[in-house]
């Protein structure tokens, strides 16, 4: 129940500082959560990974500088359940459309729904790393550089994955 932190004098901007730590959590927890979810389709595990990654950060707060903290939690998250979890079905939600559906013809709306169903099925069939990369880019708006950092690979490898993901999605949807 007793928490003791050692601090270095003069280190105001230190991960052990409650405010710095809380800010890091605010900024990065959602990305990590989504990242793990896209990989394994398991929300419970995604929560666990977020928690464990930040516990690790806390335990090592005196050794990790604030500018390294992001890549630290990314790396920890990546290593945590690497081969342990069995992937489940990734379920995605549809954002409420801003456009007025009533102006569209029923056929058009139908077609759109069908297309989305096809897309989801195709996403399900993508290899884990292509799906994760594609969704981080499309849903979370992450730049290739940042995904590369998360996955611990080069930007070029991320571009390859995006390229292959798009190619494979199109082939599945067009029924080739």
């Amino acid at each position: 129940m007793v928490k003791i932190q050692a601090l270095k004098i003069g280190d105001k901007n230190h991960v052990c500082e409650e405010e710095v730590y809380a800010a890091l959590f605010d900024t990065h927890s959602k990305t990590i959560f989504n990242y793990i979810y896209y990989k394994f389709g398991n929300e419970e595990k995604a929560y666990d990974v977020v928690q464990e990654a930040f516990i690790k950060l806390w335990e090592n707060c005196s050794k990790v500088s604030p500018d390294k903290a992001k890549s630290y939690v990314y790396t920890v998250s990546n290593n945590l359940y690497l081969n342990v979890i069995k992937a489940e079905k990734v379920r995605l939600k549809h954002r409420q459309e801003a456009l007025n559906l009533e102006y569209e013809t029923p056929e058009f709306v139908m077609e759109q729904r069908e297309f989305k169903d096809k897309l989801e099925k195709a996403l399900q069939n993508l290899p884990e790393n292509q799906r994760t990369t594609f969704l981080l880019n499309r849903i979370d708006g992450k730049k290739y550089v940042e995904i590369a950092e998360l996955e611990g690979v080069s930007v070029k490898a991320i571009e390859k994955r995006i390229h292959l993901a798009l190619k494979s999605l199109r082939e599945q949807i067009d029924g080739i």
Binding site: M1, K3, F25, D26, S29, K30, F33, N34, Y37, Y38, E43, A46, Y47, V50, Q51, F54, I55, W58, E59, R91, L92, K93, H94, R95, E97, Q112, F115, K116, L119, F134, L135, R138, I139, D140, L166, L169, R170, I173
Partner: peptide, 29 residues
């Protein structure tokens, strides 16, 4: 594909809850 994927959303992340769990864990740890 790009248009449709842009209207997809990830799972709901309950940050307040995650924060609370983390704080509890940090207390026990």
């Amino acid at each position: 594909i790009v248009e449709a994927s842009d209207s997809l959303a990830g799972p709901d992340f309950d940050m307040a809850n995650a924060q609370k769990r983390l704080d509890n864990k940090r207390q026990q740890k």
